[in-house]
């Protein structure tokens, strides 16, 4: 089982490329701040210096070391991304599974609720909520983004389970006297595991991009440095129009590499596990 799942993945060049880039960035986020232990928020030296031996990514207007900022920012952005993914996945699974298994009026109510949340533009709502909070930790940002981004996943899970529930093996388990909980754990969750994993990855992407967006509009975390916060200051200090490329290119590049490597991983997984997409 394990072999059948994992080995074909490593035959996909896409998966290898995506995974390599992603792992490199994760390693950078974990060990970077340890190996390069400069304080990202303190004054490091001359302001607005281009990259040099002393400041590998240059400095900003306040003389902050940008490499330290990007390394710490990557760490915080990934942290926010993971938290968002955990929150949205949990809500999505809960709503999706509950809806599919209970059916009837429960299903109808939950799905109307899901559709309403899906139709309310989540970014706008996130901006609105964040604007009322004076102090926003990384976790608060993650909660705001997490509670708004689950609906599409809940719908997909419900749809998948609906088609599973009518299969014979599930029916047999029911006859064998399985309760809802045992049925979910033994029959249903394994069947949606790969899809859930892929959705988890996409939620990380959504979290990272959502944080960056909130930060740029001035509603990011009030404490700590994220990639979005670095970009926000670059915009506020007109780094783009003053040609300070070392300030706004690296954080954006890390965001794009991170999220696109994750998207490449899910695409590769889809190509391997989805029978409809398998190359013939």
């Amino acid at each position: 089982m394990w072999k059948a799942m994992i080995r074909p993945l490593f035959k996909s060049p896409k998966f290898i490329v995506g995974m390599t880039i992603f792992l490199l960035i994760v390693l950078m986020a974990i060990f970077g701040p340890i190996l390069y232990p400069k304080d990202p928020t303190s004054f490091a030296g001359m302001p607005e210096q281009p990259p040099s031996k002393e400041y590998p990514l240059g400095t900003d207007t306040y003389g902050g070391d940008l490499l330290a900022k990007v390394l710490n920012g990557t760490r915080s952005s990934l942290y926010v991304g993971f938290l968002v993914a955990i929150i949205s996945m949990s809500i999505g699974l809960l709503v999706g599974i509950f809806s599919a298994m209970k059916g009837g009026i429960v299903d109808e109510l939950l799905m109307s609720f899901t559709n309403i949340v899906l139709t309310i533009p989540s970014i706008l709502l996130a901006i609105l909520i964040a604007s009322y909070l004076r102090i926003r930790s990384l976790e608060v940002i993650a909660v705001i983004l997490g509670i708004l981004s689950w609906p599409w996943f809940a719908r997909a899970i419900r749809a998948q389970l609906m088609s599973l529930i009518n299969r014979e093996y599930v029916y047999l388990s029911r006859l064998a006297g399985y309760g809802d909980f045992r049925l979910a754990i033994e029959d249903l969750i394994p069947a949606i595991a790969t899809y859930t994993f892929m959705a988890f990855i996409l939620f990380i992407n959504g979290g990272i991009l959502g944080e960056a967006g909130l930060s740029l509009i001035g509603l990011g975390p009030t404490k700590g440095v994220t990639l979005g916060v670095v970009l926000q200051w670059a915009v506020l200090m007109e780094a783009v129009r003053r040609g300070l490329w070392w300030w706004f290119i690296p954080p954006g590049l890390v965001i794009v590499l991170l999220t696109s490597s994750l998207l490449i991983i899910t695409t590769a997984m889809d190509e391997v596990f989805n029978p409809k997409l398998r190359e013939r």
Partner: peptide
């Protein structure tokens, strides 16, 4: 490309 935020692409284009 789909993962490039609009605004960062905007910054690159301005630059």
């Amino acid at each position: 490309i789909s993962q490039i935020p609009y605004y960062w692409l905007g910054m690159l284009l301005i630059y």
